[in-house]
Amino acid sequence: MFFVLLTAGILLQITAHDTTKILGYRFQQLAGPVLRIRRTVEPSNPLPPKDSPGQFVSQAEYNKLMTRYNNEHAELLALEKRYSELARIRTSLPKPGPGLIVAEVIQTAITPNQRELTLNLGAQAKFVKPGYYVMGNDTIIGTISDVFKSTARVRLVTDGHHVLPAGILLEGAKDYIPTQINGAGDDTCKIRLLPRKDYDIQTGNAVFAMKRTGFLETPILIGKVSAVKPDEKSPLLWDVTVQPACDVETLATATVIVMDPPDETGP
């Protein structure tokens, strides 16, 4: 009889689990109400309220820990804010680049000869290189000109020495008019060398920083055409004035588009 039972056991053992588990499930189903009975265990010594200095540690230690907690909480809030900003940029732009670094604007230098910003990048400065594009309010405001240990200098698109590949998108058009945008040295930019007979440029047309391998993966808005007139020196060409969409003088943070990002940048 032992061998009969043993054989039955072996047969059940080698039968596929999917077949035999039905027996177990049936038992669990039938005995479910009984099996689910349990005693609720209440803690015999409930924890005291959160704010009870002196309960576990001394008052001095409590104050020290609370100070540290408040500082950590403030840092957490700052990180959450930065993360939200990054997430917002990620969702608002089609494909800005592999990584984004949000940095605080610590200095704005707006003079007739230079139009620059200084960004506080901290430890992330090592990931930033000259030429990287910088955004403010979801538009391109300039490019990195110099990188230092923890800061970087941004040359604005309006700087007189700044040149960027750009594109004008006419109303209803699907293709950009390829061109170059130069800083005018004031609050605007200039686009020249566009033949008047070929392009019907209107005020209000959008101007984009164009895709550039290694720096920008998709066109991003710079501003809009604010004035169009025939060039004074070459009347067959347009003299286009572009008003950047972002007012950099009130900008608190800027975002650097990093093409070779570290793992911890970006959401």
Binding site: L6, A8, G9, I10, L12, Q13, I14, T15, H17, T20, K21, L23, G24, Y25, F27, Q28
Partner: peptide, 8 residues
């Protein structure tokens, strides 16, 4: 609900 191991 593995049937067989405990039985054996």
């Amino acid at each position: 609900s593995v049937i067989g191991p405990c039985l054996l």
